[in-house]
Simulated assay, not measured.
Amino acid sequence: MKAFSRALIAAAVLATAASAHAQVAGTQTLGVSVQQSQALLQGWSAKKSILGKPVYNDSNEKIGSIFDLVIAPDGSLSAAVISTGGFLGVGSHNVAVPIQAFDLKNGNFYLPGATKDALKATPAFEYSKVDKPKKPQKIQSAQ
């Protein structure tokens, strides 16, 4: 009987492992429509494709790099924060630039008409003083 129950448990474990699948972006049902799911597959990863990437001007000179992205209250992408100057984040000057001002050519970000000096002369971008949301707390179950 013990051998039979061990074999039954082993079979159940193997069946569960065989049916488990890796989560693939855009293939899981997360309460989104097929069209929204397809749009996710065509989108960019901010971390992998945008943040830290260089920004060039018309003369193909590097004038800074994308430091952050600003999301408007309606959920649209409104601005990119460009970091110029400095070394390893020390002494850098951050400037917010509207997304519409950028051009994308061959996978590179361009800011037409911009120079390092013009960006440094622009007032520095400061984050708003919005209170941080409270740290999530574990909900105690009612007993």
Rank of each mutant, 00 (worst) to 15 (best):
M1R: 11
K2T: 14
A3G: 12
A3W: 09
F4V: 15
S5M: 14
R6C: 12
L8I: 07
I9R: 11
A10R: 01
A10P: 00
A11P: 00
A12Q: 02
A15L: 10
T16E: 06
A17I: 13
A17Q: 09
A18R: 10
A18T: 15
S19N: 09
S19D: 10
S19Y: 09
A20L: 14
H21C: 12
V24H: 06
V24F: 00
G26Q: 02
G26H: 03
T27A: 11
T27G: 05
Q28P: 01
Q28D: 14
T29F: 11
T29M: 09
L30V: 10
V32Y: 04
S33T: 14
S33V: 04
V34T: 12
Q35E: 14
Q36W: 06
Q36S: 08
Q36V: 12
Q38H: 07
A39W: 04
L41M: 15
L41R: 15
G43V: 07
S45K: 07
A46Q: 10
K47R: 15
K48D: 14
I50F: 06
L51H: 06
G52Q: 02
P54T: 11
Y56T: 01
Y56R: 02
N57A: 08
N57Q: 05
D58C: 02
S59P: 00
E61L: 08
E61Y: 05
I63P: 00
I66M: 01
I66W: 00
I66E: 00
I66K: 00
F67G: 06
F67R: 12
F67T: 05
F67M: 12
D68C: 03
L69C: 05
I71V: 15
I71G: 03
P73R: 11
P73I: 11
D74L: 04
D74T: 02
S76K: 13
S76D: 12
L77P: 01
A80P: 03
V81L: 04
I82R: 03
I82G: 04
S83T: 13
T84E: 07
T84V: 13
T84C: 09
G85R: 05
G86H: 06
F87D: 13
F87Q: 14
L88S: 14
G89R: 06
G89T: 07
H93V: 00
V97H: 01
V97F: 01
P98T: 07
P98H: 02
I99T: 13
A101E: 10
F102D: 03
D103T: 05
D103V: 03
N106M: 05
N106R: 06
G107F: 02
N108K: 11
F109H: 03
F109W: 11
L111F: 02
P112N: 01
G113A: 04
T115Y: 02
D117R: 06
D117I: 04
A118T: 03
A118I: 00
L119F: 05
A121C: 05
A124C: 04
A124G: 04
A124W: 03
S128M: 06
K129H: 07
K129E: 08
K129T: 01
D131G: 09
K132C: 08
K132Q: 14
P133T: 12
K134A: 15
K134N: 11
K135Q: 15
K135V: 15
Q137L: 13
Q137V: 15
Q137Y: 03
K138L: 15
I139C: 07
I139G: 09
A142T: 11
A142R: 09
A142N: 11
A142G: 10
